[in-house]
Amino acid sequence: MKRLWAVLILMVLIAAICTAGYITIEGYRDKTVTTLQAAMAAANSGDYKKAEELAKQAETTWIDAEQKLSIFVNHSQLSEVGLSVAKLAPLIKDGSVGEFNAECSLSIVQLIHISNREKFRWENFI
């Protein structure tokens, strides 16, 4: 009976960790992708100052995210996004809009990739 209780507690713990991981990943993905999309829009409309601010904001968000997501996601995947996001502010400061957009798109794709890997999908099971 004690063993069954232990199993029940473990099941609840595992379910809680998995759910927390999923929600955290989704939350940070949405937040960072929205910021990056806004930064791209600002850069494309010529508002480089706003784009730089948003790029810095995305970087700050990601630094916070990296700490929390490292519990659930492979650290190298997080570092890749981190490196990509860190390039954004210097790029827009130099006025390299094309490279800025490319780097933003890369970060967004990496983030979507991280989140997709945790989704309840057939592709992830096989």
């Binding site: 199993v7 099941m11 595992i14």
Partner: peptide, 20 residues
């Protein structure tokens, strides 16, 4: 070290649950 430890812990405890 690249892998989160939670992955291993969840898998281990998952197996324990299935076994019991």
């Amino acid at each position: 070290l690249d892998r989160p430890m939670a992955n291993g812990v969840i898998a281990i405890f998952g197996l324990v649950i299935f076994e019991i």
